[in-house]
């Protein structure tokens, strides 16, 4: 943890109704939790006047209703709110959601048939494929940002022993569910798209679906804690289409917790 209360915050306006608060600190899990808490607090304070908010590694972009009467005042107060969150978060040295947030467990088939870069990562790191998988599945990650593609989670941070640079030339197509590593980040491609991350496995779980209600469209939210666990080819092939993660409609919270617990074993 490298945060200190001495770090500074910076407010910059972009256009009529968009500003960013930048936290001058090196990205870390603790900072992610602070920024997620800032966005929550800002939404609670101003409700519908906040049209959008994009939390990222060391910044928070806010889009406000252009009809808002006193945008500069709002931004100043939002900034002060962020400063308070930052000070208390940096001082307490605790991760707010560690106690309050369930850890999401994501099943992954780590097999070379769906992991074209597993061998490459192993060679680059001087490890066996098995060791790469073990190190990847051993850690608990935090969603530091969502973006690039809808629902793509930037997960921080992998064990340094398996940190691997992006491919020199990105692939034209990476399949939905591909699990990748880029430097110290790991992530899941929510749909087929081009991409340059090292693919080391694939999940049968659907990460993003606009057919779900907005609060559930994305499996991930910034600050969410995530683990991966290995499944077999047979489990992958037979992963139920009505898995709570695949169809949320009408599912009880219990079914969801079951998925979470299943991964906790």
């Amino acid at each position: 943890m490298s945060l200190s209360p001495l770090n500074k915050l910076r407010l910059s306006w972009h256009n009529e109704n968009t500003f960013t608060v930048t936290f001058e600190a090196a990205p870390c899990v603790q900072l992610t939790h602070i920024i997620a808490a800032c966005l929550c607090a800002i939404r609670q304070c101003w409700g519908d006047d906040i049209l959008d908010g994009i939390p990222a590694y060391d910044s928070l972009m806010i889009v406000i209703d252009p009809w808002h009467e006193t945008p500069d005042e709002l931004a100043q107060q939002a900034m002060q709110l962020c400063e308070r969150e930052f000070l208390s978060g940096a001082v307490s040295q605790q991760r707010p959601s560690e106690q309050t947030c369930l850890t999401l467990s994501i099943p992954v088939l780590y097999h070379q048939s769906v992991a074209p870069d597993l061998r490459r990562v192993a060679d680059f790191c001087g490890l066996t494929c098995g060791e790469v998988v073990e190190l990847h599945a051993r850690k608990t990650y935090t969603v530091c940002a969502l973006g690039f593609a809808p629902g793509f989670p930037y997960l921080g941070f992998v064990d340094e022993r398996i940190a691997t640079p992006r491919l020199a030339t990105p692939r034209k197509s990476v399949p939905e569910g591909a699990v990748g590593i880029a430097e110290t980040q790991t992530g899941i491609y929510p749909r087929q798209s081009p991409g340059g991350w090292n693919i080391i496995g694939r999940t049968p779980v659907r990460c993003f679906d606009v057919a779900r209600p907005i609060a559930q469209a994305s499996l991930f939210t910034v600050g969410q804690r995530v683990r991966f666990y290995a499944i077999s080819q047979a489990q992958y092939d037979n992963w139920p289409a009505d898995d709570p993660a695949n169809s949320w409609g009408g599912k009880s919270p219990g079914a969801w917790a079951e998925l979470v617990n299943q991964g906790r074993r």
């Binding site: 908010g53 889009v63 593609a149 809808p150 629902g151 993003f208 907005i214 910034v222």
Partner: peptide
């Protein structure tokens, strides 16, 4: 679209 940027869905 308003209110979707935080999920990575563009405007």
């Amino acid at each position: 679209r308003k209110g979707w940027l935080h999920l990575g869905l563009c405007e």
